[in-house]
Amino acid sequence: MPAYLLKRLISLIFTIAGIAVVTFFISLVVPLDPLAAIAGPQAPQETVERLRVLYGFDQPLYVQFGHYVSRLSEGNLGMSFQTGRPVLDDIIQFFPATLELATIALIISIVSGITLGVFSAVYRNSWIDHFARVFSLIGVSMPVFWLGLVLMLIFYFKLDWLPEPGRLDIMLIEPERVTGFLLMDSLIAQDWEVFYDALMHLILPGSVLGLFGLAGIARIVRSSMLDVLSQEYVKTARIKGLAEHLVIVRHALRNALVPTVTVIGLTYGGLLEGSVLTETIFSWPGLGRYLTTAFLTLDLNAIVGGTMLVAMSYSLVNLVVDLLYAYLNPKISLDGEGSLS
């Protein structure tokens, strides 16, 4: 186990270094000039030239690359052109909002995914099964950017059940920042008004994003439930006269959840990704929007920092999933070549 962990961590470091190089070269193939972009349409040419010197863009590429590497190796992500702050500060500010959204979305995905999956399996090939499957597939087929707009129109504007886009009502002031998660910070501050308001603001974007992960979870739960339900011990439990719902929940579901863990991990990664579009629609001040703006404005340091962070969390989630899976399922050997890929 420790050997395996070490191997994974080393490969993670390689990957991160690779990510840094790839991102730098993405910025190299850009046939355009980030400085002219920073300066905007109105600033005179002299200003652009001055900024070029100030930001070191007048130097040859290998010098820039050298600076870039030495800076990164010190853990310095540099300054964002867009916000004029260290990229790290930006990330610390924006990432919790994204994580909070993705986590709520994941909870919604898991709860509804498991429910649908169980019903699908128990009432296999009936109309319930078909309905559940089509519903979850619709969820994953929906263009989030469009669904977000439509749901906002219905639930916020027409019905007035849910609050406006954003993270918190305009009259409320964020509690002191401890974790950056509004739900947690408001609990720590025992500010119930903020907690309730933040939760209400999370429902709509959380559900839209959650729909996205629903299908994968429902599918795996259904297929592993089917698998487990045909096993001997389940049959025995039934013969012993245990109530059907107890058989399903206590015996079948518990065992069916093991393979689900893998899918949940992958879903979490997918949700971080899906947040890019969701945040754009719901004015969510998170990393997805920060990154999109960075791409659209060629804010190189922010792009590098942001993508590295996303890629790292993605890899980390995968690692944790693999470990968890192995822990839950001792039959899998971690050191076997290709056993997990």
């Binding site: 355009l32 000039d33 980030p34 400085l35 002219a36 972009a37 300066a39 905007g40 349409p41 109105q42 040419q45 652009v48 659209l296 404005t297 060629l298």
Partner: peptide, 25 residues
């Protein structure tokens, strides 16, 4: 084009025609 592509291109005189606006400084 997004602004990061539009303005650099304009500044480099690489456009044929450009739809733009100007606000007084």
């Amino acid at each position: 084009l997004v602004s990061a592509q539009l303005w650099p291109k304009y500044r480099a005189q690489k456009h044929d025609m450009i739809m733009a606006r100007w606000g007084p400084d």
